[in-house]
Design a protein around this nucleic acid. Structure first.
Lengths: 347, 347
DNA sequence: CTGATGATCGTGAGCGCTAACATATGCTTC
DNA sequence: GAAGCATATGTTAGCGCTCACGATCATCAG
């Protein structure tokens, strides 16, 4: 049937068995139309009989069509990253691509060489899931090389130079952030505070814009790490302040940290305090209370990033960037202001 | 400095510039001791000047030492999987290996060919993160081929044949499951129920064993999917039963679902109901109330799986499987029984 | 019936690298 | 100072595949 021999079967073994040249076998496995049906059938039979399977390295080396993408990212356990990855994988698989993943350490600083060493060879296509300094830097390095690169990002703008770049797939989370902020304002909150994730924030920009439009001076942003724990620590002070009645969080994990802090300090959600997250992670709907959050289509971002790359690879053209519009999902961590606590002064 | 030319620089370009043969360059980039220091320096200078970077495909094809592992898994967004992956990556990077990830769809049934097509070529080393039917099947397929395979698993035994296999890295979650069950029993609970994840369960075995040791007839296992939502659905009935005072859950996500169900049905945790999870996921400590769970060293499992593979690759020997001992972390979802609700009959 | 045309297939070269062997050198050793 | 041996480098072949071409054959217009 297959395997078990010493040396793996090659295209030549198949060719011999099928009574054709190795090139014809190559044509068959590459779906070339230039092969007679009868021949194709014979070759396929030989392939099946020998259990032949093309060697990917050889194909790459021989310079055929590109069939793999390298994904550069940092933390694969972040919800956004994981989902984006999943989207890339789905799309890649559907197109017969192999996905190679290389994980960078957010705490480390890499020089150019170290970044470039992550891709299989110079010029190999890559996708960067960018959401922190390390990945943004990686992206810049790849951009300078002759590599075809696409960037998938959860929506953070990551700095001016990337805005409008033609290889960017992103989420318009700036607009939703503004919408979410306005939503809170419309419910009577005098102010909305922002607990930020470590990356440059378009979410923060949306929040600022919405406040300014309402004539409210944005209060200083509170910074948190990526973990629930860090959000908890960062939010303790904020939550303890009775003047704070609404907090917009950089993502769901941070929101969970805030919720825990609220619980610890005895503030009722949503009675005393409204909280909004970002991501709509699987737990959001089942938290106690269920979290009001923003549904970010990370998988769509991943798929889009791959599509963009594929188009660049095929047509060499300049596909335009895609922007996806997320949606606010109202659940039970948000409510009208002034339901119980006084907006000013501690009574 | 580098890049920007038409054809990427090869080993020959470096050789010419350094005034040596290509083989000497090869020796340098492979850290062969057989090169004079002066020559090595000259070659390294040429490498730096040209921005040379070895082509991975060519190296693989030429049959040098193996430098990449393919990881087969299903859901990368599951906490256990993601962490295991992370462990593999850490270890792989430290050893100069490239990690190739191929994600299988748990809902799909793959035939042998489709599985084998996931690895770069016949015989390429692979690690399977096994925790469901699809990955277990993948593992069997790889095992039959001449591929070097290691299996990393969160501890589910996955069927008799795998017990004691010499290529398995696992967690002794059977023992902790028993310990956790006993812990609940010792607190006065008359019974402990089990909400199961979809895979074959050593955790379940531990639970059964502990109950039987205590002379208690295990009640029927309640089955859940992997998502919080499915756990919630599955647990509703269980939670509504006042006789049920303690539930051991297949993982943290399920526990969160149970907790939500308890909240919905008005049962107090830990007053009326004790809940234990598995994983110690990042949220566990910050849930309201904080979740009693088991710290499973998934990263360690991942690292171990890679180490095992490396040993097999190098020595060809038969390294023994590693079993890691997880720990019960008591937080606030567990408490003594009978604190409030009557053990039998609805009053 | 001749040449042109298109479909089908084969041949040779080479992708960038490493293994295996061959070939210099220098340095011992008796 | 010839034989022996280690050290340092070069040469050749080939991994498995695809590309660019060339060859073959049937078909068909003129």
């Amino acid at each position: 049937m297959s395997a078990a021999e010493s040396r793996p079967v090659s295209i030549f073994d198949v060719a011999k068995l099928a009574g054709v040249s190795h090139q014809t076998v190559s044509r068959v496995i590459n779906d070339s139309p230039q092969v007679a049906d009868a021949t194709r059938a014979r070759v396929n039979a030989a392939i099946a009989e020998l259990g032949y399977r093309p060697n990917r390295s050889a194909r790459t080396l021989a310079g055929g069509a590109v069939r793999s993408v390298t994904v550069l990212t940092t933390d694969t356990s972040l919800y956004g990253t994981a989902e984006t990855l999943r989207g890339i994988e789905d799309a890649a698989r559907a197109n017969g691509f192999t996905v190679l993943i290389s994980v960078l350490d957010p705490a480390e600083t890499y020089d150019e060489d170290e970044i470039l060493a992550r891709i299989p060879h110079d010029g190999a296509p890559a996708i960067v899931i960018a959401h922190d300094d390390t990945t943004v830097r990686a992206m810049r390095v790849l951009q300078k090389s002759q590599t075809h690169t696409t960037v998938a990002t959860g929506g953070e703008h990551l700095g001016i130079e990337l805005d409008g770049a033609d290889w960017l797939v992103s989420l318009d989370d700036r607009t939703v952030a503004a919408r979410a902020t306005k939503y809170l304002l419309d419910m009577g909150h005098r102010n909305v505070h922002y607990l930020a994730i470590p990356s440059k924030a378009s979410r923060q920009a949306g929040w600022t814009a919405a406040l300014e439009e309402a004539g409210i001076e944005p209060s200083p942003v509170v910074h948190s790490g990526w973990t629930v724990g860090s959000a908890y620590e960062a939010a303790l002070e904020l939550v303890a302040d009775p003047d704070v009645t609404a907090i917009l969080c950089g993502n769901d994990d941070l929101a969970f940290g805030v919720l825990y802090a609220a619980h610890k300090t005895g503030r009722d959600v949503p009675g005393d305090l409204s909280v909004i997250g970002f991501d709509d992670s699987p737990l959001a709907a089942y938290h106690v209370p269920p979290l009001t959050t923003v549904d970010l289509d990370f998988r769509g971002v991943g798929r889009g990033a791959f599509e963009l790359l594929r188009q660049k690879l095929e047509s060499g053209g300049q596909p335009r960037p895609t922007w996806r519009s997320p949606e606010l999902i109202v659940r039970e961590t948000t409510g009208p202001a002034d339901r119980r606590s006084a907006p000013k002064g501690k009574p």
